[in-house]
């Protein structure tokens, strides 16, 4: 993943395609992606995937490793081109990356030459926000991720979990309409993970964002999501969608409720089938 340096295609004003999910903030229809790996090494990463995410919905994707979750997020972010199919954000079809779709990557992607403060400030600065406005936003996010004292540190001086928190703040500070998150809490210890989940839920409830969130952790999926999408591996397809009607605000106390346990069992069964098929 991630050998995508070129922003595909010419910059061009998006064409409005009202037929594709009129009410969807994010609509993916019949998208396939084949990686051309050279002779006999083609990988069908995604096979006719369709997914509509409504405005302000928190949609979670779970699936076995290598099923194309990251690939799907890269496509929506406009960082890679689908082999076939269409994608649209707020009715505007996706041809190139843009600040309307923020992304937290699976690996570390902080800019090593910028301090924590400058990293978080990067997006607002690109958008031409004034220095005073920027510093207000940065200070707020620094406080929220608990790294105010590390504002002037370079990423190399931070722990893995601290870096990922900065990456999340960097994406949020840019205030994107759609937030794509690729296992953002995967590297965090369980306490920090719980704090970050709470923070994310609070921000999502306050700022009303459309979120597409990838995770391996089913508890996390059920804690966060309005809907959980289960993918199958090779070729990556959408296997099932579960709507999560658990009451909000949620906390991990839910984990003992029968509804939660029933949902968890269904997702586990769906995933177990996948893994059995692999072997």
């Amino acid at each position: 993943m991630g050998d995508v340096i070129e922003a595909p295609s010419v910059p061009r004003a998006g064409t409005v395609r009202p037929e594709a999910g009129r009410s969807a903030a994010l609509s993916v229809s019949n998208v396939s992606l084949v990686y051309a790996g050279g002779r006999g090494r083609e990988v069908v990463a995604l096979d006719r995937v369709s997914l509509d995410v409504s405005p302000n919905e928190f949609c979670v994707i779970v699936g076995p490793s290598g099923c194309g979750k990251s690939s799907l997020l890269y496509l929506i972010a406009g960082l890679n081109e689908a082999t076939s199919g269409q994608m649209a954000v707020n009715g505007v079809s996706v041809h190139e990356p843009g600040p309307d779709r923020g992304m937290v990557f699976q690996g570390y992607t902080l800019f090593p030459w910028l301090t924590v403060r400058q990293n978080i400030e990067y997006g607002p600065k690109r958008q031409g926000m004034s220095a005073a406005e920027r510093s207000g936003i940065v200070d707020r996010y620094l406080a929220e991720i608990g790294l105010t004292q590390f504002a002037e540190h370079y990423p190399a001086m931070l722990s893995g979990g601290m870096r990922q928190r900065v990456a999340i703040a960097r994406a949020l500070a840019n205030d994107p309409g759609v937030l794509l998150m690729d296992e953002p809490f995967g590297a965090l210890d369980s306490q920090t993970r719980a704090t970050m989940q709470k923070l994310l839920l609070r921000i999502w409830e306050q700022h009303k964002k459309t979120v597409l969130f990838v995770t391996h952790d089913i508890d996390e999926a059920l804690l966060l999501g309005d809907r959980v999408v289960v993918m199958s591996a090779r070729p990556g397809r959408i296997k099932a969608e579960l709507s999560i009607a658990l009451p909000r605000p949620r906390s991990m106390d839910l984990a003992l409720e029968p509804d939660f346990i029933a949902l968890k069992r269904r997702i586990l069964d769906l995933l177990r089938d996948e893994i059995d098929e692999e072997h």
């Binding site: 995508v4 340096i5 922003a7 972010a77 843009g98 992607t109 800019f111 030459w113 690109r126 994406a171």
Partner: peptide
């Protein structure tokens, strides 16, 4: 490459990549 990808999702234009990302990196 993900440094460049991250920069794109934060609103960096293609013409800015050399100066804002490739040069400092």
């Amino acid at each position: 490459r993900d440094l460049v990808n991250a920069a794109y999702t934060l609103g960096t234009k293609r013409s800015e990549v050399v100066w804002h990302i490739v040069f400092p990196a």
